[in-house]
Amino acid sequence: MTEYKLVVVGAGGVGKSALTIQLIQNHFVDEYDPTIEDSYRKQVVIDGETCLLDILDTAGQEEYSAMRDQYMRTGEGFLCVFAINNTKSFEDIHHYREQIKRVKDSEDVPMVLVGNKCDLPSRTVDTKQAQDLARSYGIPFIETSAKTRQGVDDAFYTLVREIRKHKEKMSKDGKKKKKKSKTKCVIM
Rank of each mutant, 00 (worst) to 15 (best):
Gln61Ile: 07
Leu53Met: 12
Glu49Asn: 12
Gly48Asp: 10
Ala11Arg: 06
Glu3Tyr: 07
Leu52Val: 14
Gln22Leu: 04
Asp57Lys: 01
His27Thr: 14
His27Cys: 14
Ser17Tyr: 00
Leu19Glu: 15
Leu23Phe: 13
Ala59Glu: 03
Gly60His: 00
Leu52Ile: 13
Val14Pro: 10
Leu53Tyr: 11
Cys51Ser: 10
His27Tyr: 12
Lys16Glu: 04
Gly15Pro: 01
Leu6Ala: 06
Val45Ile: 12
Asp57Met: 01
Ser17Met: 01
Leu6Glu: 00
Val29Gln: 14
Val14Ala: 12
Gly13Trp: 08
Tyr40Glu: 01
Thr58Ala: 06
Leu56Glu: 03
Val14Thr: 12
Lys42Tyr: 08
Val9Met: 08
Ser39Ala: 15
Gly10Phe: 02
Gly13Glu: 14
Val9Ser: 06
Ile24Trp: 05
Ser17Pro: 00
Tyr40Gln: 01
Ala59Ser: 11
His27Glu: 15
Glu63Arg: 07
Thr50His: 12
Val14Leu: 10
Thr2Asp: 15
Gln43Leu: 08
Thr35Tyr: 00
Gly13Thr: 10
Thr50Tyr: 09
Thr50Asp: 10
Leu52Thr: 15
Asp30Ser: 14
Val9Lys: 01
Gly10Tyr: 02
Gln43His: 12
Glu31Tyr: 15
Thr58Ile: 02
Lys5Arg: 13
Tyr32Ala: 06
Asn26Lys: 12
Glu49Lys: 11
Ala11Gln: 09
Gly48Leu: 05
Ser39Tyr: 03
Asp38Gly: 03
Ala18Thr: 07
Gln43Tyr: 08
Thr35Ala: 00
Asp33Glu: 09
Tyr32Arg: 05
Ile36Ser: 04
Glu3Thr: 10
Phe28Ser: 05
His27Phe: 12
Thr58Glu: 03
Thr50Ile: 12
Gly60Val: 01
Lys5Ser: 08
Thr50Asn: 12
Lys16Asn: 05
Ser39His: 04
His27Asp: 15
Arg41Cys: 11
Ala11Lys: 05
Asp30Asn: 11
Val29His: 11
Val8Asp: 02
Thr2Glu: 15
Asp47Gln: 09
Tyr32Gln: 05
Gly13Ser: 13
Gly10Leu: 01
Val14Asp: 08
Ser17Cys: 03
Glu31Arg: 07
Val8Thr: 05
His27Gly: 15
Gln25Phe: 04
Ser39Trp: 04
Thr2Ala: 14
Cys51His: 13
Thr58Tyr: 00
Asp57His: 00
Tyr4Thr: 11
Val45Met: 14
Thr20Gln: 06
Ala11Phe: 15
Leu52Tyr: 14
Thr50Val: 12
Leu19Thr: 14
Pro34Gln: 05
Val9Ala: 07
Ser17Val: 01
Gly48Pro: 08
